[in-house]
Deep mutational scan, measured.
Amino acid sequence: ERLAYIADHLGFSWTELARELDFTEEQIHQIRIENPNSLQDQSHALLKYWLERDGKHATDTNLVECLTKINRMDIVHLME
């Protein structure tokens, strides 16, 4: 799945992406607590919560915009 692929590449950027996707610091902290050992797991959790929260509004376009804002064009190019 594309989101899994994106999550695998996010690394430390997942928190920046979370902020761009309008997650609160508290929500970010919660994701860290729930997935303490792996940045990859934290990234996967973030994208899963985003899909659950935004439903049909959780679009590739939205994700590309946010990834561009945090200067992760490498991931944007991987999505093309």
Rank of each mutant, 00 (worst) to 15 (best):
R2D: 15
L3P: 04
L3S: 14
L3N: 08
L3Q: 11
L3C: 07
L3R: 08
L3I: 14
L3K: 04
L3G: 04
A4D: 14
A4H: 13
A4G: 14
A4Q: 11
A4T: 15
Y5V: 07
Y5H: 13
Y5R: 02
Y5G: 03
I6W: 02
I6V: 06
I6P: 02
D8P: 13
D8I: 03
D8K: 12
D8V: 03
L10C: 04
L10V: 12
L10E: 02
L10Y: 02
L10P: 00
G11F: 10
G11C: 06
G11E: 08
G11I: 03
G11N: 15
F12D: 02
F12S: 14
F12H: 06
F12M: 14
F12V: 10
F12E: 04
F12A: 14
S13R: 08
S13F: 10
S13E: 07
S13Y: 03
S13A: 07
W14G: 00
W14N: 02
W14T: 02
W14E: 00
T15E: 04
T15M: 04
T15A: 11
T15C: 09
T15I: 09
T15S: 13
T15V: 12
T15G: 10
E16C: 07
E16V: 06
L17G: 00
L17V: 07
L17R: 00
L17T: 03
L17S: 00
L17W: 01
A18R: 00
A18Y: 00
A18E: 00
A18T: 00
R19V: 07
R19M: 15
R19D: 12
E20G: 07
E20I: 02
E20L: 08
L21N: 05
L21M: 06
L21A: 07
L21T: 02
D22P: 01
D22H: 12
D22W: 04
D22T: 10
D22M: 08
F23E: 00
F23I: 14
F23S: 01
F23W: 02
F23M: 11
F23H: 01
T24M: 03
T24E: 11
T24N: 12
T24Q: 13
T24Y: 14
T24L: 05
E25K: 15
E25F: 04
E25W: 08
E25V: 09
E26P: 07
E26I: 10
Q27G: 05
I28T: 07
I28E: 05
H29N: 06
H29K: 12
H29W: 05
Q30D: 04
Q30L: 09
I31V: 09
I31F: 13
I31N: 03
I31W: 02
I31G: 00
R32G: 09
R32S: 09
R32I: 02
R32Q: 15
R32A: 07
R32N: 04
I33P: 00
I33L: 07
I33E: 14
I33F: 11
I33A: 11
E34A: 10
E34I: 10
E34H: 10
E34L: 09
E34Y: 05
E34M: 04
E34N: 10
N35L: 06
N35P: 01
P36A: 04
P36Y: 04
P36H: 04
P36I: 01
N37Q: 08
N37G: 11
N37K: 08
S38W: 02
S38D: 10
S38N: 09
S38Q: 06
L39F: 12
L39D: 11
L39V: 10
L39A: 14
L39R: 06
L39N: 07
Q40V: 08
Q40H: 15
Q40A: 06
Q40C: 05
Q40G: 05
D41Y: 04
D41I: 12
D41K: 10
D41H: 06
D41A: 12
Q42E: 04
Q42C: 13
S43M: 00
S43D: 02
S43G: 07
S43W: 01
H44S: 13
H44D: 00
H44W: 05
H44Y: 04
A45V: 15
A45G: 03
A45N: 14
L46C: 15
L47Q: 01
L47W: 03
L47G: 02
K48M: 04
K48W: 05
K48E: 11
K48N: 14
K48C: 14
K48L: 13
K48P: 00
Y49L: 13
Y49C: 14
Y49D: 11
W50V: 11
W50L: 13
W50Y: 05
L51C: 03
E52A: 14
E52M: 08
E52Q: 15
E52R: 10
E52N: 12
R53I: 05
R53E: 05
R53T: 11
D54S: 07
D54W: 10
D54H: 13
D54I: 02
G55V: 10
G55D: 14
G55R: 05
G55I: 07
G55S: 10
G55A: 12
G55E: 11
G55W: 06
K56C: 15
K56W: 06
K56G: 11
K56N: 08
H57G: 11
H57F: 06
H57Q: 14
A58W: 05
A58S: 04
A58Y: 13
A58V: 11
A58P: 13
A58F: 09
A58E: 08
A58R: 08
T59D: 06
T59V: 06
T59C: 07
T59K: 11
T59S: 14
D60F: 15
D60S: 06
D60Y: 05
D60P: 08
D60V: 06
D60H: 03
D60R: 08
T61H: 10
T61M: 02
T61Y: 07
T61F: 09
N62V: 14
N62T: 11
N62M: 13
N62I: 05
N62D: 14
N62K: 02
N62Q: 08
N62F: 04
L63T: 02
L63K: 01
L63N: 00
L63V: 07
L63H: 01
L63C: 10
L63E: 01
L63S: 01
V64S: 12
V64P: 03
V64W: 05
V64R: 13
E65H: 09
E65M: 03
E65S: 09
E65P: 13
C66V: 14
C66L: 06
C66Q: 11
C66T: 08
C66I: 05
C66S: 12
L67H: 00
L67T: 00
L67V: 05
L67Y: 01
T68E: 14
T68V: 12
T68D: 15
T68L: 08
T68N: 03
T68M: 07
T68R: 08
T68S: 05
K69Q: 12
K69A: 12
K69P: 01
I70W: 01
I70P: 00
I70M: 12
I70T: 03
I70F: 01
I70E: 03
I70S: 02
I70N: 01
N71H: 05
N71M: 05
N71C: 09
N71L: 04
N71S: 11
N71P: 05
N71E: 05
R72W: 01
R72N: 03
R72S: 15
M73E: 15
M73L: 14
D74N: 01
D74Q: 02
D74L: 00
D74S: 01
I75L: 06
I75M: 15
I75F: 02
I75W: 00
I75T: 03
I75S: 01
V76K: 02
V76S: 04
V76T: 04
V76E: 09
V76W: 09
E80D: 03
